[in-house]
């Protein structure tokens, strides 16, 4: 069995990296190796995980500098004997080892509005064409791994923006609500408010790292920015609104 050469962050802010050697087998992923480490050499190694199938988004970490899911990172992508650096997410406050405090996300979640749908026709159920929901279903794929939030330089390198900018995951959430085909109060004011959309400089790292392959920038953020332009910066629409009242 080959041996993995791990360098894992241990402890809180005053901690340090520790080196470990762990054997691994065919088809194993980084999370398997971390579990082995836990069961044999470091019983109190803190790591979050649930499904180990890329569906729950709990085991996010930075592996050789790349934010990704430990359960979806196969050991085969590394050279044998290569040093593998496993660090906690940088954008969040460190609790211990590989676990960070992501509770700020749940505060952000509260700020995004809830859907408010049109009632169905009397005696009928709600009708929506598949064509209408295709676009929005993409946003529902989000597993809330918060890797997009971790990689986003707006908050990663500038923590002071955390309050002004909800971040990519919540732009996806906003898009999900704002583009719902049956929402009866199109969320125009919310979109105009933007939740910090103007801080995004569309450098697309969120899209690059998304394990679900959601086109966060092209399908959520930019369309929201364009809707925001409709509300705030489009002179033709301003004239239209002045002449014909609120559209």
């Amino acid at each position: 069995m080959p041996t993995a050469n791990l360098k894992v962050w241990r402890g809180d802010d005053s901690g340090d990296y520790q080196n470990y050697q762990v054997e691994y087998g065919h088809g194993e992923v980084v999370l398997d190796v971390i579990h082995k480490l836990q069961a044999t050499q470091a019983g109190d190694l803190a790591v979050r995980w649930n499904c180990k199938a890329g569906k729950c988004g709990s085991c996010s970490a930075e592996i050789n500098g790349h934010p990704r899911l430990q359960c979806m990172t196969r050991m085969e992508i590394f050279e044998e004997g290569e040093e593998i650096v496993i660090a906690p997410l940088k954008t969040y406050k460190l609790i211990r080892d590989l676990v960070t405090d992501v509770s700020v996300n749940f505060e952000k979640a509260k700020t995004i509005p809830f859907v408010d749908l049109e009632k169905p026709a009397p005696g009928d159920v709600r009708r929506m064409a598949q064509m209408d929901i295709d676009r929005v279903q993409e946003f529902h794929k989000c597993i809330e791994c918060f890797i997009c939030m971790d990689v986003c330089h707006v908050i990663r390198d500038h923590p002071d923006n955390m309050d002004k900018f909800v971040g990519p995951r919540y732009f996806v959430q906003l898009a999900m609500v704002a583009m719902h085909p049956l929402d009866q109060h199109p969320k125009r004011e919310m979109v105009a408010y933007g939740f910090g959309l103007e801080y995004c400089n569309i450098t697309k790292c969120c899209t690059e790292v998304c394990p679900e392959g959601i086109h966060i920038t092209d399908n959520a953020i930019i369309p929201l920015k364009e809707r925001r332009v409709d509300e705030l910066y489009d002179p033709l629409r301003m004239i239209g609104r002045a002449l014909f009242g609120k559209k």
Binding site: G65, H153, V154, Y199, N201, E208
Partner: peptide, 17 residues
């Protein structure tokens, strides 16, 4: 801003667009 994903940005402040 940033040079690449998960690579530190040199500027101290950032106001985006």
């Amino acid at each position: 801003s940033p040079p690449a994903c998960a690579v530190a940005e040199p500027a101290a402040t950032y106001s985006g667009e």
